[in-house]
């Protein structure tokens, strides 16, 4: 084998390695998957009490994250029964001229990454409003508990139809950023509803219940209805 042949073999080897490395790099660019379809009827909160199962509606166009901008948007009739609906996976609603779909989701993290959710469905992630709903099942009436949430960005939250939290402005999702006044969870189903408005960039939310000592509430489960 002459020197030129050796050089050619070496060049081919180097190019092969570079090609494999490039392929590996493409694999690494696959978007992370944090949201999956629920596979069980109910799900306990995480060890830290975070609710990891939600219905999320594809995003609705929105403008502004200030108190007044968010409140005026969510009080519009965006879609039928918006403050009472408990959807099913795949249900569709009309918002303006758009048909949007509800998705049942489990998150593997403490938070629900709405940026992942929208990007995967090729939807806008900026200047949008996300609706989210879940059902918290309580084995008994629980008094003096608090809903504690974090959101990027502004968000408004309801428990059994009553507005309990509103946080506004361009903000990151910080655990227990917004905390409700003391409330009572009914025995059985409790409907938790949220409207999250993002201005731009990343968007996500997290939510859990705290007990009277501000510790994660134990004994509840989460489901998405019958």
């Amino acid at each position: 084998m002459n020197t030129n042949t050796i050089k050619k073999i070496a060049l081919i080897a180097v190019m092969t390695i570079l090609t494999l490395a490039a392929a590996a790099s493409l694999t690494a660019q696959t978007p992370p998957v944090t949201l999956t379809k629920p596979a069980t009827p109910t799900k306990a909160p995480s060890g830290d009490g975070f609710i990891q199962r939600w219905f999320v509606l594809e995003p609705i166009p929105a403008t502004g994250v200030t108190d007044n901008a968010v409140q005026s948007l969510i009080k519009k009739d965006l879609f039928p029964n918006q403050f009472a609906i408990v959807p099913k996976d795949g249900d569709k609603v009309s918002v303006g001229n758009n048909e949007l779909t509800w998705h049942a989701l489990d998150t593997i993290n403490y938070n629900v990454n709405l940026f992942h959710f929208a990007r995967e469905r090729k939807k806008k992630t900026s200047d949008v409003l996300f609706w989210a709903v879940t059902i918290v099942n309580s084995p008994r009436e629980m008094k003096d508990v608090r809903l504690a949430i974090g959101s990027n960005a502004a968000s408004v939250w309801w428990v059994n139809g009553k507005e309990v939290i509103g946080i506004y402005g361009d903000r990151q999702a910080v655990i227990d950023d917004g905390v409700s006044k003391r409330l009572t969870l009914n025995k059985g189903e409790n409907i938790i509803r949220a409207a999250i408005v993002n201005g731009g960039g990343a968007t996500d939310f997290c939510a859990r219940f705290l007990d009277a000592d501000d510790k994660p509430l134990k004994g509840i489960t989460v489901s998405l209805g019958k």
Partner: peptide, 8 residues
């Protein structure tokens, strides 16, 4: 303080 943004 209860959480970052509310008081009780």
């Amino acid at each position: 303080a209860v959480g970052s943004s509310f008081a009780t």
